[in-house]
């Protein structure tokens, strides 16, 4: 039975589903990376995702326009980000806690809206598989990578883009400076507040898309608490990736691949209790970090509010 794991069907299955599963993590974690790089920890990602998922679903079902759904999810995510930014930057609230507050708010509000506006679980015709010419027809590779919906492709394209912005642009330099040494950045004329507003709103926007990628692309339904802890895993993956987009990609892929592996382990009847199988991705994520003994430091100003000396 264990040897079945190495058959082509299974390997292709694991990889293809790992890539699908990684998508919401990627959006949310890349967004969180920008926030943390500028010194802000947002634990409210899950709430932003849930509101994004609901909004996208509702707009898509009302208008029949999926892109409008994504756009609305982005706007709702951005508004949540704006609120978070105000609380974090202007009111200098403790970030871990305000994030938990926003999480609970999003969790409750999305469920409330779902119950009052939709009333029941419905389905929507979500983003279809988007086949790329030539690439999708490739044997194996095509099946794994190029028979996914469009939001999957965009999430992966986001990784190099985020890397480029963070490392090769002035904006990225400012973001990193604000996260490492806000006093110095401030003295050089960089507005710490403006940069943090920007990154938190960007993070909210991407979390909104993460929600949309679930409700109108991967699953095509909305259900209460449908993210089920996914947003918290996304935050953890930022630490796994050591605040680097490609590291985050590695973490998201590792976690998702092991998750799809454990599904296959159960399907193939390998005699491991189901609960133990479900633990695998969590344990392995920790183990990989232990073995790799990363020496990367967190951004120095992470979680620290910036007060301008007057």
């Amino acid at each position: 039975m264990i040897s079945d794991l190495f058959s082509m069907t299974v390997l292709v299955g694991i990889l293809a589903s790992g890539i699908r599963l990684a998508t919401p993590y990627l959006y949310a974690a890349i967004g969180e990376t920008f926030g943390q790089r500028s010194g802000v920890l947002n634990l409210g990602v899950e709430g932003q995702m849930l509101l994004g998922a609901f909004t996208a679903f509702y707009v898509a079902i009302q208008t029949g326009n999926l892109w409008l759904g994504v756009l609305s999810a982005m706007i709702v995510g951005a508004v949540m980000g704006l609120a978070m930014a105000f609380v974090t930057v202007n009111l200098q609230a403790v970030q871990g806690i305000s994030g938990i507050g926003f999480y609970l708010f999003g969790l409750g509000l999305s469920d409330l809206l779902f119950q009052r506006v939709l009333g029941t679980v419905e389905t929507v015709k979500g983003f279809p598989k988007f086949n790329l010419p030539v690439l999708s027809d490739l044997p194996i590779v095509g099946e794994i990578f190029f028979q996914q919906n469009i939001l999957v492709y965009i999430s992966f394209a986001l990784v190099p883009l985020a890397w480029f912005v963070l490392n090769k642009t002035t904006l990225g330099l400012k973001i990193r400076a604000v996260g490492e040494n806000p006093e110095a950045a401030d003295s050089l004329g960089v507005s710490v507040a403006r940069i943090r507003y920007l990154t938190i709103i960007l993070g909210g926007t991407l979390s909104g898309i993460a929600g949309a990628s679930l409700s109108i692309a991967l699953l095509n339904v909305f259900q209460q608490n449908m993210t089920s802890g996914l947003g918290f895993i996304a935050v953890a993956l930022v630490y796994f990736g050591a605040w680097r987009p490609f590291g985050v990609l590695g973490g998201a892929l590792l976690f998702s691949l092991v998750n799809s592996l454990q599904l296959w382990v159960q399907v193939l009847g390998i005699p491991i209790p189901s609960d133990i199988a479900v633990m695998m991705p969590y344990i392995l994520t920790i183990l990989v970090l232990v073995i790799s003994v990363s020496r990367v430091r967190a951004p120095s100003a992470l979680t620290k509010p910036f007060k301008r000396e007057e």
């Binding site: 299955g13 599963l21 991967l218 802890g229 799809s260 599904l263 399907v267 193939l268 009847g269």
Partner: peptide, 25 residues
């Protein structure tokens, strides 16, 4: 009959992926 318990009553994404796994199998 392939059986998958996903360890949660709320994880819609994992339930969906479990179904994908069944289809692939």
């Amino acid at each position: 009959v392939n059986v998958n318990y996903i360890g949660s009553f709320s994880d819609v994404a994992l339930a969906s992926e479990a179904a994908n796994t069944h289809v692939a199998a």
